[in-house]
Each structure stands twice: as C-alpha cells, then as structure tokens.
Simulated scan of single mutants.
Amino acid sequence: MVIMAGLVYGLNPSYVMPLTLNIEVEALALKHIFRAIMGIYMGLGIFWLLGAFRPTLWKSATLSNVLFMGGIASGRFISLGLDGFHLNFFIAMILELIFMIWGFYNLKVYNSSFGLK
C-alpha cells in the first residue's frame, strides 16, 4: 500500500494530485517534494517487504513501520485539530493507527519466536 501511495504521489504529481486531492502542482519545488515523498515511501515499502521475508530484518522493519505509521498518524491528528476535519484523511489516520498498534503487537508477540532480543 505504501509503495502504491508513493507512486501516486510521485510519478506524475501535476496530473494525479489535481485529480485525487484537488491540489495543483505546477511549481518545480513542489514536484521535487512529491517525488522525494515517493522515494521515501518506496524505500520504506521495499524495506518492509524485505523484513517480511528475511527474519534478520524483521524487527527493524517492523519497528520502522511502527514509527512511520505513528508519525504520520500524529501529524494527521495535529492537522485535525489545527486545520479541521477531512473524512479521507481521518480514515487514513485510523488505518495508520491500526497498523501502528498491530506492529507493536507483533513486536511483543513474535520477538521471542524469532529469537530476537
């Protein structure tokens, strides 16, 4: 999901952002920002996929996922209070909180199963 979101943000932000978020992306700096976001999302998404299949990376991938999801949800929560309610972003915040909690749960339950400390 994160890799797909990254592609949505960065492949062609001048075309996609007006359609999906009603944001016009004409400034070169804004295009760079969206493509940098794409790079972050793609890099982390690939790391999380590797962590799902390589036990040596599992703990660090899960922890980075927890921090990422918690960080985004925190930012959305702040925006909810300062900027107002938007249903799509509220739903995203709830999903991010669920993924964060699920990650904490997995760290607690599966840590000993992989022999991780």
Rank of each mutant, 00 (worst) to 15 (best):
I3E: 08
M4E: 14
G6P: 02
L7K: 05
V8L: 15
Y9S: 01
N12Y: 10
P13S: 15
Y15W: 14
V16T: 12
M17I: 03
T20S: 13
N22C: 12
V25Y: 07
E26V: 10
L28I: 06
L30Q: 07
I37F: 10
M38P: 00
M38D: 04
Y41C: 01
G43K: 02
G45I: 00
G45P: 04
I46R: 02
F47A: 09
W48S: 01
W48Q: 02
W48P: 02
L49V: 05
L50N: 00
R54P: 01
R54H: 15
P55V: 10
T56L: 11
T56C: 14
K59A: 11
T62S: 13
L63G: 01
L63H: 04
V66Y: 00
L67I: 11
L67W: 06
M69E: 00
M69H: 06
M69K: 00
G71M: 13
G71W: 10
I72R: 01
R76C: 14
F77T: 08
L82H: 10
L87Y: 10
N88W: 13
F90I: 06
M93P: 03
I94E: 10
E96F: 06
F99W: 04
M100W: 04
M100S: 05
W102D: 06
W102L: 12
G103Q: 00
Y105W: 14
N106T: 09
K108I: 14
S112H: 13
S113C: 15
F114T: 09
L116E: 03
